[in-house]
Amino acid sequence: MEFGWKKIDDDMTARWTRKDLLGLRELTADEINFVLETTDAFKQVGTREIKKVPALRGKTLVNFFVEPSTRTRTSFELAAFRLSADVINISATTSSLTKGETLKDTARNLQALQADIIVLRHSSAGAPQFLASRLKASVINAGDGAHEHPTQALLDLYTIRERRGEIAGLHVAIIGDILFSRVARSNIFGLLKLGARVTLVGPSTLVPREFEKLGAEVSYKIEDVLPTADVVNLLRIQHERQRREYFPGLGEYIRLFGLTKQRAKLLKPDCLIMHPGPINRGVEIDSEVADGLQSVILDQVTNGLAVRMAVLYLCGGIAR
């Protein structure tokens, strides 16, 4: 005999069965939409007097950041706190990886600690996949090399949906270093699955025509794209890790692709301006544009927290 909660109706059971979130490439449009709907519920929690729910009480989350990141890590950490999970942070410098331990051994140690959810940031593409297939714990990809950054794309999709109601039919321009950007890749997969038109803009060395095979358009002239865009998503120019042979130089980049005050005048009045942060004021975006009325950059931060709560709940919310 069963006591307690009555059996959940079919329409009250989550349309999500995945243990892990590794990327947007493998998700269906229905799964993406379900994450966005779930995010609505968790965003509401942030407006309560007590911003904490017991949805993951007793679960242990390990924030395993082999590559440094403050924003994404703290966002996951706060999301876990708000779900009542316990959090351990392990970074590259504190982990035994620097002492020569392999990723697999580190993972097995995390498993031995009975971690329920592992949030992994790693410089190698595929590292989350590697852990996910070997561990019982849920693995959430918080960025792997130039491969994917699914929660960033989901929060971008959520922010667009929140402002524009629907994503299908919108024209989204992603501007900057597309080739080395996991944010761009995850966004391209997500946006196309939900029916948006995507144009990638940047220097030809950083925006190879290869991306057209995914279904995106490619342009090397920002002025051609801005007038029809409903959303512009500016990627951070990671000048500290740009290689000379790909990157034209900061001054030339700003001249050709920076969203200056002057260029922003080409945008439709309701076009949203997004940026995954941290922003380089005066490089990919002018200060006045970043702080202007069309900018939803801070909404992205708030929504990131809600999206991560949703993802942690969906992957880690049942007994495995």
């Binding site: 989550a14 993951l56 049942i318």
Partner: peptide, 16 residues
């Protein structure tokens, strides 16, 4: 759904 007391035992995830 987010306040249920069966977090550690449930096999089905309730919709929030």
């Amino acid at each position: 759904a987010m306040h249920r007391d069966d977090v550690g035992t449930r096999k089905e995830l309730p919709v929030v």
